[in-house]
Design a protein around this nucleic acid. Structure first.
Length: 721
DNA sequence: AAAAAAG
C-alpha cells in the first residue's frame, strides 16, 4: 500500500483534520468532522462555526488526558511509528533514535525527583510547572490578565482597554513571541522527554541557560536591550539580524577598491546563469533566448547618461527572462546618505544605530523607487543589505501616508513581509522592528510552530507591519483573525524561493488578499525569471535593480570540492570539524542532519542540529547555540540555507551536494560575511563530479577539486584554512 | 527533499 500523504477520503488512514492541507480552499467547510462528540475533531453540524476551538477548560482537560509517561510510546520507538507527518507535535521525539544518550543518565522515573544534575538547579522546579502561570513575572505586564485558565476567549479580548497604554514597547516584548508559550509547552506541546534529553547534558552550563524561558532564544543575549542601546558601543554590538549580514562598515572592502577593479560587465552576470536553470516554461515558449544571446547587450541597457532609467516591461516574458536590471555600482553611492534617498530623520538615526550609517548599493538603488511607490525587484548578493533596502523605505512610506498617529486598536496591518522560514522571519523582524518603532509603528511576527495566542493578541491591539511565514498567515486569515485588505506594501524576501513549488500557491493566495494595486517588493540574492508568474499577476511596471561588481571574483569565499568515497563521509566530516571556529554543515535530509549531529556529539564535538523535525523552541534554541558559540557545529537542512545570519561561520560543509546552483550560492553565503574569509567544502562521490562541474559553472564559481580519504593531511589542512 | 498551520 502506497504511503500516500493524502489518502483518499474514506481511506483507512483518512483523517479529516488534515484533509484541507494544501488545498486551495482551506478552512474546508465540507470536511467531515468526527462523529463522536468527545473527539477534538467533532463537528456539531451545520450551524457550528467552521472550526470549533477549544476553550481553556477543554485545553486543560486535554492536557490531563495525556497518557502517563509510562504509557507513551516506548522511548526506543523508531520513527516509523510516528503518526502521519502532519502531527508534528505529537510525534515521538527525534531523540528516540539516540540510544547512546539514555545510557548515561537516570531513568525518567528517577529523574523527576532526582537531585540536581551537575550545576543545574533542581528539576523539582520543572515538575512544579503548572504553578508557573501564577508566579510568572513576565506576564505581569499584562497586569489585569486573568489566570490562564480563566482567560477570556480571544474574541473577548478586544474589550481590554488598558492595553494600548501600558503596553511596553514592542522592542522589549519581542523575545516573548519567540518563547514557546508556557501553557502550550507544558500542557499540549510539552517537549517530549526524548526531546529534552538531546540537549547536550554535559555542556549545558546551567538550567537557566538552557530553558528557552530564561534564555530567550536569540534576542537579549546577543545584543544589548533596546533600552541599553544608546550606551552600547556600536562597534561592539554583535550582529543584529540581517544588519550584520552585511559586511561591517569598517571591514568591508572599500568601495574605492571595488570600483577600480575592472567592473565585470553586467551583461556577463547573473542573467546568463538564469537562463536554463529550469526546464523551459510554457510562458517563455520559443522566445527563450539561447545561451549564445547572452552577450547581446541590447537586452541590458545601461543607465543612460541623463540618468533615465530603462523600465521593466511587466508581463513581457522575454525581458523578465533576462531580468533586465539597473545596475548600481558602489561608486554610484559614495557620499550618498540615507537622508538623501528620502528617508526621514528618525529612521536615518535608527539605521545608524543599527550599524548602517550610510547606504549600501542595493539600498541606494531601491529605496528611492520604493518611496516613490513603485513595485521593485531587487537582487543583491547574500549579505548585501537587502533587509534594510526594503525595510527602511517601507516604514517611511507607512509613516508618510497616515503616520503613527493613528494607533487605534485592531487597526489593520498595512504592510506584510513574507519569508520562507520562521528563522528568517524572526531575523527580519529584528531589523525592521527597531526601524518601525523609531517612528512609532508596530510590527508583529506571524509564523507557525508557536502558539498563536500572542500573535493574535498583538493583531488585536493593532500592528502596522506583519512579518511572517505563509502557513500561519493563511491560518489566521482563515480564522478571521487577520485581515490583509489594508496591506498596501508587500515584500517577498527570497522571492525566487517563494515561487518554488509548494510555496507559490500559498503566496499567491496571500497576495490576493492584500489591497488591490498595493505595492510589491521582491528581493533575493538569486532573483530570476522564476518570479515571472508573480510579477505578471501582481506587479506593475516594476523597477529592477541589482548591484554590479558583486561576483565571485570579489568574494572572500574559498570553494573546495572533496571527492570522496561515500563510506568515508562521516569520518571525513568529523575530521573537517575538528577545528576552532564555527562550522555549518548542510545535509539534504532532516534525518541525516539529526544523525550527523548526534554522531559528532558522540565524537566529542559540540554540535547540534537545525531542521524541520524539531519543534520551534528547539529550532530557535539550537540556532542560538551556534550564534552564542555554545556549539561550534550546526548540522542543518536547507532551512538554514537562505538568509540566516550567524557571525563568524568560517566553514560551510555540504555533506550532501546541492541540486541547484542557487542552493549552493545561498548555502555558501552563510560564510565569508562581513568581509571575512570563509571556506566552503562540498563532499561528493566521484560519479557526481560532472554534475558538480555544471552546477559550479552555472553559479560562476571557481572551485578546486581534491580527492581525499580519512586521515589525509589534506583534510586537516582544509580544516585549518 | 525541504519548507510552510493547528487553538
Amino acid at each position: 500500500m502506497p504511503q500516500s500523504k493524502n489518502p483518499a477520503v474514506g481511506g483507512k488512514n483518512y483523517d479529516p483534520k488534515y484533509s484541507a492541507k494544501g488545498a486551495p480552499n482551506r478552512g474546508g467547510s465540507n470536511n467531515q468532522g468526527s462523529k463522536s462528540p468527545g473527539h477534538r475533531g467533532f463537528r456539531a453540524d451545520e450551524g457550528a462555526p467552521k472550526k470549533a476551538r477549544w476553550n481553556a477548560d477543554e485545553r486543560a482537560a486535554k492536557a490531563n488526558d495525556r497518557p502517563a509517561y509510562g504509557d507513551r510510546p516506548a522511548y526506543g520507538a523508531g520513527r516509523s511509528e510516528r503518526p502521519a507527518t502532519g502531527a508534528r507535535t505529537e510525534r515521538p521525539a527525534y531523540n528516540n533514535d539516540r540510544p547512546a544518550r539514555s545510557n548515561d543518565r537516570p531513568s525518567y522515573g528517577d529523574r523527576n525527583n532526582s537531585a540536581p544534575r551537575g550545576d543545574r538547579p533542581s528539576y523539582g522546579d520543572r515538575n512544579d510547572r503548572p504553578a508557573r502561570s501564577n508566579d510568572r513575572p513576565s506576564y505581569g505586564d499584562r497586569n489585569n490578565s486573568a489566570p490562564r485558565g480563566d482567560r477570556p476567549s480571544y474574541g473577548d479580548r478586544n474589550d481590554r482597554p488598558a492595553r494600548s497604554n501600558d503596553r511596553p514597547s514592542y522592542g522589549d516584548r519581542a523575545p516573548r513571541t519567540d518563547r514557546p508559550a508556557y501553557n502550550n509547552d507544558r500542557n499540549n506541546e510539552r517537549p517530549s522527554y526524548g526531546d529534552r534529553n538531546s540537549a547536550p547534558r554535559t555542556e549545558r552550563p546551567s538550567y537557566g541557560d538552557r530553558a528557552p524561558r530564561t534564555e530567550r532564544p536569540a534576542y537579549n543575549n546577543d545584543r544589548p536591550s533596546y533600552g541599553d542601546r544608546s550606551s552600547a558601543p556600536r562597534t561592539e554590538r554583535p550582529s543584529y539580524g540581517d544588519r550584520s549580514e552585511r559586511p561591517a562598515r569598517t571591514e568591508r572592502p572599500s568601495y574605492g577598491d571595488r570600483a577600480e577593479r575592472a567592473p565585470r560587465s553586467f551583461e556577463d552576470r547573473a542573467p546568463r546563469r538564469s537562463n536554463d536553470d529550469r526546464p523551459p516554461r510554457r510562458d517563455f515558449g520559443n522566445d527563450r533566448p539561447s545561451r549564445s544571446d547572452d552577450g547581446d547587450s541590447k537586452f541590458y541597457p545601461k543607465r543612460s547618461e541623463n540618468g533615465a532609467k530603462p523600465t521593466f516591461a511587466g508581463g513581457d516574458d522575454v525581458v523578465l527572462e533576462r531580468l533586465e536590471a539597473i545596475a548600481t555600482t558602489a561608486s554610484d553611492v559614495v557620499g550618498v546618505t540615507f537622508g538623501d534617498l528620502g528617508l526621514g530623520e528618525n529612521i536615518v538615526r535608527e539605521l545608524a544605530a543599527l550599524g548602517a550609517p550610510s547606504p549600501f548599493p542595493i539600498q541606494a538603488a531601491t529605496i528611492p523607487d520604493v518611496l516613490a511607490g513603485r513595485d521593485v525587484l531587487g537582487r543583491g548578493k547574500t549579505g548585501s543589505g537587502k533587509t534594510i533596502a526594503f525595510g527602511a523605505p517601507l516604514v517611511e512610506k507607512l509613516m508618510e501616508n497616515n503616520g503613527a498617529k493613528d494607533r487605534k486598536m485592531a487597526r489593520k496591518p498595512r504592510a506584510l513581509i513574507l519569508a520562507p522560514t520562521r528563522e528568517l522571519a524572526l531575523q527580519i523582524d529584528r531589523t525592521v522592528q527597531p526601524i518601525a518603532r523609531s517612528v512609532g509603528l508596530f510590527t508583529t511576527q506571524i509564523y507557525g510552530g508557536v502558539p498563536q495566542y500572542r500573535q493574535v493578541s498583538a493583531l488585536q491591539r493593532g500592528v502596522d507591519i506583519i512579518i511572517g511565514t505563509a502557513g500561519r498567515i493563511e491560518d489566521l486569515i482563515d480564522q478571521g483573525r487577520l485581515d490583509l485588505s489594508e496591506v498596501v506594501v508587500t515584500v517577498l524576501d527570497e522571492a525566487d524561493y517563494m515561487c518554488d513549488l509548494g510555496f507559490l500557491e500559498p503566496v499567491q493566495r496571500i497576495l490576493r488578499q492584500t489591497k488591490k494595486g498595493g505595492q510589491k517588493l521582491l528581493f533575493s540574492a538569486t532573483l530570476d525569471k522564476g518570479v515571472a508568474s508573480l510579477v505578471k499577476e501582481f506587479l506593475t511596471n516594476p523597477a529592477v535593480h541589482e548591484v554590479a561588481g558583486e561576483d565571485q571574483a570579489s568574494s572572500t569565499i574559498d570553494h573546495r570540492v572533496l571527492v570522496i568515497e561515500h563510506r568515508d563521509k562521516s569520518r571525513i566530516i568529523e575530521e573537517l570539524v575538528n577545528r576552532d571556529g564555527k562550522t555549518l554543515i548542510f545535509s539534504r535530509t532532516r534525518a541525516y542532519a539529526e544523525q550527523l549531529a548526534e554522531q559528532l556529539e558522540d565524537a566529542g564535538v559540540k554540535a547540534t542540529s537545525l531542521h524541520g523535525d524539531l519543534n520551534q523552541a528547539r529550532r530557535t534554541r539550537n540556532l542560538q547555540m551556534l550564534t552564542s558559540g555554545r556549539v561550534n557545529v550546526l548540522v542543518a537542512t536547507d532551512v538554514a540555507a537562505r538568509g540566516i545570519h550567524v557571525d563568524d561561520i568560517d566553514l560551510v560543509i555540504q555533506a550532501d551536494a546541492p541540486d541547484e546552483y542557487k542552493t549552493y550560492l545561498h548555502r555558501s553565503g552563510r560564510t565569508g560575511r562581513a568581509g571575512k574569509t570563509g571556506t566552503v567544502v562540498t563532499l561528493i562521490p566521484k560519479q557526481r563530479k560532472r554534475r558538480m562541474d555544471e552546477l559550479l559553472d552555472r553559479a560562476e564559481i571557481e572551485a578546486s577539486y581534491m580527492s581525499a580519504g580519512p586521515g589525509d593531511a589534506a583534510i586537516q589542512e582544509l580544516a585549518n584554512v
